[in-house]
Design a protein around this nucleic acid. Structure first.
Lengths: 149, 149
DNA sequence: CAGAAATCGGTTGCGCACAACTTAATCGTG
DNA sequence: CACGATTAAGTTGTGCGCAACCGATTTCTG
């Protein structure tokens, strides 16, 4: 049995508050480029992985089409990307960067420095935090036959 | 200088994803009571601290009136709380639980067990995570004269 | 091959979050 | 006391986030 009855609630609130605080750190950095944090995440995936279907984008960011469709439409309206129905599978839509979207990568540059100086954690603590969050994000491994991925 | 250029971005996404995953764990527990996670947070504050102004509620949850006003209006419409202008200061609004709102505390009961069994972390790791989040939520302590609060 | 089931992306509706603004009340200073 | 500044709460507008649903396409099965 767990010791502190309110511990999980505390963690949950801290998680909730930290997540909002984080996006509010990004805001002044992304606002000049007309981007929100979720939009920036989509662009990062495209910058890193190249063209991707809405489906895979959703798997990567853990967002569904209800969130992505309008978001992608806005990024498309801004000229950062294009959407095209898949040739082989007409159900899918392939999202690709435009020249403008590619250039944005250099224009935005590295947000690391500006962000980290606002957080009161050491390198070691950041690494700890990351690994804890990664594990917390992973569901409690249901042991299915041959599914180690 | 930091080692991994993408580390902070990783942490930020993990934070963002973990926060959403957490509220989706709460959802099936709160839905039967007609509550959302932010609404539940407001009730928790009221259960714990008693009547409170919108201002103090906002300071506690780090939410502004633009978020709280409609949220409180919905909780009021559900009969869980009442709002009344402050007697001494007509600008403030005091939020108080109704009988219904009080009873809800027992009806909902302890969400701890149902939540923790969904997370793949040990007690020690949860404590670590909490302390890291608490520190991350705290701004990098600007040393002002006599302001340790 | 035909029909059922699954998949993909989109739309709708609702509830946050938050910036920007408004109104009303209080406070501070001359 | 007067009046400008500050504060509290509310409103408006925009963009998520997600459940629920829809239409089109593909895949599975008999």
């Amino acid at each position: 049995m767990r010791e502190s009855a309110a511990l999980d609630e505390m963690i949950c609130f801290q998680l909730y508050a930290a997540s909002r605080a984080m996006t509010s750190l990004y805001r002044p950095l992304l606002d000049p480029h007309g981007l929100t944090y979720p939009q920036y995440l989509v662009l990062r995936v495209l910058w890193h992985d190249g063209p991707i279907t809405v489906r895979d984008l959703g798997r990567t960011l853990r967002l569904d089409s209800g969130t992505l469709s309008p978001l992608l439409k806005r990024l498309e309206a801004q000229g950062h990307l294009t959407r095209a129905r898949g040739a082989d599978d007409e159900r899918t839509v392939l999202v690709s960067l435009t020249e403008t979207g590619q250039r944005l990568r250099d224009e935005i540059g590295d947000l690391t420095q500006a962000l980290l100086c606002s957080v009161n954690l050491t390198d070691d603590e950041l690494i700890q935090l990351r690994s804890l969050l990664v594990r917390a994000n992973r569901p409690p491994a249901i042991p299915t036959k041959g599914d180690p991925a």
